[in-house]
Design a binder for these strands. Structure first.
Lengths: 339, 339
DNA sequence: TTGTACGCGTTATCAA
DNA sequence: TTGATAACGCGTACAA
């Protein structure tokens, strides 16, 4: 059961190590009969190629990295699962690299990781995907990367995104269609580009319904549950209390629902609340949250696939947009509805 | 800015590559002056040692793996963060390996990973930590590993755990002290050893208070929110409705609170609910959940530290028990309390 | 179609 | 305390 090498396989199947190498890499010029013999020997001996040896000799490490700096367990889990699923299909290994609150040394840490491990490529999740210095640093190494939901900065690397503005527009229209005319908005983290887009979608929808966006109460949030609490308390303390709150993500929406419970405001009878992302949390709180389903898993799965194509020097689309959809649950209803 | 090698550093500092290697590995027999010169050259050239080269030449890959098969985003996130934090301190890389619902090929997949990547060691989280075949397979490779919260199976590998039974005992005593005498229990996933311990703690506490455990309603859950819904519906449909529900984890407790909301049962006035784990969810739902804080992050951090010691062939304790504590929040109160 | 010789960047052995 | 040289397991260039 001890580890065996390409030399052992070569000896066992009566060929040279080079031929074994050819079979390993699916190179064309090998006689089918030979290929079969080598394959048999490999499985019989339970041969596993050494990744370090391959990456030292060849140009590839068969390793890619997933970079994130995001405190949301649900989001990180979804993104990792998507990337892993694609890696599993393609025999790649995934190195996860959380970059939590490290400030300055972030770039250095990433570069050190890149140089040490000989990574083949990187998938970058928001908000890192909008980090210009990081992008420049990766560029300086000539490393392929794919960004998920970056900001509008022009760069040749492929991006995977959803239409945050359109989604926020739809959600707002839905609330307006229910009859709400005073809708409190909780903005997302200023560092995330999607925060800006979601606000714009909200405002555009209001305008298209002839409602003045400037008259709607807007509070700053930071994507955390706690920031949702604070923002919602402010919104609900207004003299003209909104009949609905649209939070830029589910965690903050959960905060709004929490505050409503505290204040004895019934949801959705007296207050509608909607979120964004459709994380597991959305269907775990009461009432279950109307939200926008963001395909985080699929975005990451797709991004990883693109990265692999990029590494193989295949042509890849500059931008891929994935579909979202409105998930209507029990946290929204017409305002002050009868009983 | 291009990558430079040990040879470049050797040339720049006027020594042989072997001496650079010695400095790199903190070997003793290097003159301080020489060491300083080499160090300077390394930082000046921004030298980064090649991990693949090191693992090919040496015995170590500086890579460890974290194995998990757990659908809970919060748990996985906590465990990963803990392991990463320790890795960051010690210049190790972490390979995360989710093994989702794959059944049979699980062992093969792990062994392939081990053989290909030349991992130095493994941290195993529940429920995999109780998988006898996996343990045996890892043993067959002579690979060091540390298990988090395994079952009682005797094995020489170090384990890190908390006292699930004592914690469940405390929580139950707390509910009894509040005055509850009819407490519904939702069991955890049958595959997790901790599920058994938590039930035993519950029953032991009842017995020590002179309450017959056999008369308390117990439902099977599977650690998911949905299974909590199902179990809670059963418990609350009883003719003799319990005044409290103790769920074996937070997700299921959230399910119980959800059902209470649906049924119009006020929490905690008419029904107390408590959970286990103290995930982020516990303080995000309303009312916030009384629960047991399980130190998942610390357990993983500790386990990773032990693994590193194990790899270095240092002596490590066979078992490490981390402290838990009861977190009292608003979801529990005396039964049918005045007002 | 197949094989030989060399190099990848580092650690290990042994000698100086 | 230091250095020359041989591994480590594989891919690449070139030859057969």
């Amino acid at each position: 059961m001890a580890r065996c090498t390409i030399t052992d396989v070569a000896a066992a199947s009566g060929v040279s190590i080079k031929t074994v190498s050819r079979v390993l890499n699916d190179e064309p010029s090998v006689r089918p009969e030979t290929r079969r013999r080598v394959r048999e020997a490999m499985t019989a001996m339970n041969y596993q190629p050494s990744l370090p040896a391959r990456s030292l000799a060849g140009r590839r490490s068969s390793l890619i990295a997933l970079l994130f700096e995001n405190p949301s367990a649900n989001y990180v889990f979804a993104v990792q699962s998507g990337a892993m699923a694609k890696c599993r299909e393609t025999q790649l290994r995934l190195l996860v690299q959380p970059l939590n609150d490290l400030g300055e040394p972030l770039i250095e840490e990433v570069l050190a990781m890149v140089d040490q491990t000989h990574i083949d490529g990187v998938v970058i999740t928001p908000p890192l995907s909008a980090n210009a210095e990081l992008i420049a640093a990766l560029d300086s190494r000539g490393l392929p990367f794919v960004r998920i939901a970056p900001d509008g900065t022009s760069h040749s690397s492929p991006i995977v995104e959803m239409d945050d503005e359109a989604a926020a527009h739809e959600m707002t229209s839905y609330l307006l269609a229910l009859g709400h005319r005073r809708i409190g908005f909780i903005k997302g983290h200023p560092g995330h580009h999607s925060s800006k887009l979601r606000l714009e979608g909200f405002q555009a929808a209001l305008a298209s319904w002839g409602v003045d966006p400037a008259e709607q109460p807007v509070e700053q949030g930071y994507n955390s549950f706690e920031s949702g609490l604070t923002a919602a308390r402010r919104l609900l303390a207004c003299t003209q209390r909104p009949t609905a709150i649209f939070a830029s993500n589910d965690d903050m929406a959960a905060g709004a629902i929490f505050v409503a419970h505290e204040f004895g405001i019934r949801v959705p009878d007296e207050l509608s609340v909607s979120g964004f992302d459709d994380t597991q949390l959305a269907s775990t709180i009461y009432p279950p949250l109307t939200t926008v389903h963001q395909p985080s898993y699929t975005m990451s799965y797709t991004a990883t696939g693109l990265l692999i194509d990029l590494i193989k020097r295949n042509a890849v689309p500059a931008s891929t947009q994935l579909a979202h959809n409105l998930v209507k649950r029990a946290s929204t209803a017409p305002p002050r509805r009868a009983n």
